[in-house]
Amino acid sequence: MHLSEGILPMKWAAAWYAVAIPFVAKGIADVKKKAKAEPYFKPLLGMMAAAVFIISCMPVPVPTAGTCSHPCGTGMSAILIGPVMSILVTSIALFIQALFLAHGGITTWGADIASMGIAGSFAAYFTFKLLRRFKFSFFASGFVAGVLADWATYATTSFELASALHGNKPLGRLFITILIAFIPTQLPLGILEGFLTGGMAAFVARRRPDILMKLKAT
């Protein structure tokens, strides 16, 4: 989910930066440790950022809510490389998108990382791990993880918009209004994201199970 440049007032933009930066810093610290043992990991993260960029750069405008909609791709990256590194990858994909596609923004970068990176990645990762523990198939686990990652992202974005723009009106009312405004695109897009993530997990498990083993994504 991408909030357009300039939509958030300055104090809210700064507040979401404060939320996002510690997660990105933790991701950087983790990569430094991991890259010592597995030096190919940095190029792998670069490739994953490129993949997230490609998947999440198909915007569908949702004018009533003031944002764009699209598959996130973060559920997929969280399953493969873990939630914290997925946040790092998302921060890079969002930065390039904001610069070259006017998709998202530099001032809304923190808020976009919070919704797409933090909420989306953690929702997908824990859902996938939980369902795999109960022996669900790769497709079913990936499907539910993808759907929940997408919906968690959009719920967070709705909260970000509502908290910044509610003014004198009640926060809860605007939050619900924005959530409802997202429904026409988010319900189908969440399901699309589910097929994307579940299909990816099943395809990789069938064709190249060594990748899932290597990344401990089983």
Binding site: P39, P43, L44, M48, L80, F195, G199, A202, F203
Partner: peptide, 27 residues
Amino acid sequence: FRSIGCLAGAIIIRAYDQSIATYEAMM
């Protein structure tokens, strides 16, 4: 729906293989 999942899987496999090739070339 089936094709889009396969497409995503193919991108991930390509990304993984490319990361190994890139690392080896850089090394």
